[in-house]
Design a protein around this nucleic acid. Structure first.
Lengths: 121, 121
DNA sequence: CAACAAGCTGGAGTGCACTCAAGGTCAAGC
DNA sequence: GCTTGACCTTGAGTGCACTCCAGCTTGTTG
């Protein structure tokens, strides 16, 4: 069993992305040419697993499917698109930073409201 | 014009919440008894403004409309619900902290990918 | 007074990201 | 040989949080 591929179920387990969502991402062009076993079943590679982790992370921080598709298309077009891909990541990085700031402010606000309840268990 | 109330437009401007969304929140029970001018137009108080800021903040950090409605209902039920309201805020606080951690991890991942592009402008 | 801006209501529509359903294939185990 | 389970495809359905629309009233302005 020195098999380096993952079944759909294993991938779902490992990445926390559901079977349906894995197929959905593939349909949307976020995951290209997943190899297949003889019976037509998907066999994900380790690289697929890493990329799906990236997808999960970018989605969780608010990148849309549309934006991810664009990023993937750029990747497929080769090295000339590297600057644009880099810019997309830089822009998203700033978005994440703003999200962190927004949440730190939210913590302050929640803490302020919690003071109002401080006398209780 | 020493008027301490805000028109819908002023409230939208101030809080960044759209007119439609302000009405939607009211319909959903997140905003009770907004006073009205003689002509039936809404006149928001300063307290409304503060509360809408809270709503915006909690929504922005992932509290659902349903949860917010529940929180509001508890508030309307009086002081006996204080412990539950406090617990809701504590739970949400933990959620926000997890979101910050998730985003800090996302930053690391994005930075890692950016290293791959470091040779470019 | 005409016309425009601001607001009102009830209800329908939208966009996004999944998520589910129906009907089928295929391999392994009893 | 039949059932079970994992997977397949296509296409429809769902849930959420808005967002828009039609048709109305009211107040202001040239």
């Amino acid at each position: 069993m020195t098999n380096t591929t993952l079944t759909p179920a294993q991938m779902a387990e490992r990445t926390g992305v559901s079977l349906d969502t894995l197929r959905y991402y593939e349909r949307e062009g976020l995951l290209d040419d997943v190899t297949r076993a003889d019976n037509g079943h998907r066999r994900y590679s380790e690289d697929d697993a890493l990329w799906i982790e990236v997808l999960r992370c970018l989605r969780a921080t608010g990148m849309t499917i549309e934006q991810l598709r664009h990023y993937c298309e750029l990747g497929a077009q080769g090295d000339t698109t590297k600057p644009e891909r880099r810019q997309i990541l830089l822009d998203h990085r700033r978005l994440i930073e703003r999200q962190i700031e927004e949440r730190q402010e939210a913590l302050r606000l929640v803490d302020h409201k919690l003071e109002h309840y401080r006398e209780i268990t």
